[in-house]
Amino acid sequence: MYGTPHIVGDVMTRTVAAVAGHAAFKEIVRLMRDRKVSALPVLDGEGRVVGVVSEADLLPKEEFRDSDPDRYTQLRRRCDLAKAGGLTAEDLMTSPALTTRPDVTLARAARAMAHARVKRLPVVDDRGALAGIVSRADLLKVFQRGDDEIAEEVRREVVTQLFPGPDSAIRVQVHDGVVTLAGRVRDRSLIPVAARLARAVEGVVDVDFALDGHRSPGRVDLSAGRVGPVGPGDRGPGEQ
């Protein structure tokens, strides 16, 4: 639907490999190999996600297998040393798990992944039960939207809302996800707003302007409401 941001439920993988808390170390390794994944949600007896076990959680067992850590390492890497002695998913997992919901927008899920520096998020329902998993690659699926589809949404949700009626004549062109708004506009103070709204459309890579005969690619000052390069003569009172 136009104007509705894509949500996690649109792109997530619904068939997910998972393990119980009592799953043994080698069972976890075999499942990761067979399913070609680098992490597995850990479930309790009712199917709720209680943690995630990843390759990073398994590696300490090999790293410290034949070593005798010094005092500094024991203090600095206490968690890794504990995982080196882990035997089950419950011992090894990172808990509580960072999860998301099917109705969360892709932008919000992307921010959560970036902040936590993780490659995927288990998706849970209202009960906390596993419903799917969403990865970085899944979030990039929005950029597979066609240029025509993006252009139509920009026309409906940006141009029609900000520049209605005969007062403005704005043309929308999209090439490889880059939106160009061209034509004449009476109220140029709306251009930064148009930039924000157009960039918020799923699949948009960048926004360019060719308004009132002035082309301004990538030069929208969103904070000050200006279009074009900001030079020395553009500084306001008190600005350095």
Rank of each mutant, 00 (worst) to 15 (best):
H6V: 12
H6A: 15
M12V: 08
M12Y: 10
V16N: 10
A18L: 06
A18V: 03
A20W: 05
A24G: 12
F25W: 11
V29P: 09
L31T: 08
R33N: 09
R33L: 10
K36D: 14
S38L: 00
L40K: 13
L43P: 11
D44G: 06
R48S: 11
V50N: 11
G51E: 13
A56Y: 10
A56R: 14
L59S: 01
F64D: 11
D66F: 12
D68I: 12
D70W: 08
D70N: 15
L75T: 00
R77D: 09
K83H: 04
A84K: 12
T88R: 09
A89N: 04
E90C: 07
E90R: 14
T94Q: 09
S95D: 08
P96L: 07
A97W: 05
P102Q: 10
D103G: 11
T105I: 04
L106D: 01
R108N: 05
A109P: 02
A109N: 05
A110C: 06
M113E: 12
A116S: 12
K119E: 12
K119A: 14
V124R: 02
D125P: 04
R127E: 15
R127P: 01
A129T: 13
I133R: 09
I133E: 11
A137I: 02
L139R: 08
L140H: 02
G146K: 07
D148V: 10
A151C: 03
A151D: 04
E152S: 14
E153A: 08
E153R: 10
V158Q: 14
T160D: 15
L162A: 00
D167S: 15
R171K: 13
G177I: 04
G177W: 02
G177S: 10
T180I: 04
R186P: 00
S189V: 04
A194G: 09
R196T: 06
R199L: 15
V201H: 02
V201C: 08
G203I: 00
V204A: 04
V205E: 09
D206P: 07
D208N: 06
A210K: 00
A210R: 05
L211S: 02
L211K: 03
G213S: 08
R215I: 06
S216H: 13
G218E: 07
V220A: 13
S223Y: 06
R226K: 15
P237L: 11
E239C: 10
E239S: 13
Q240S: 15
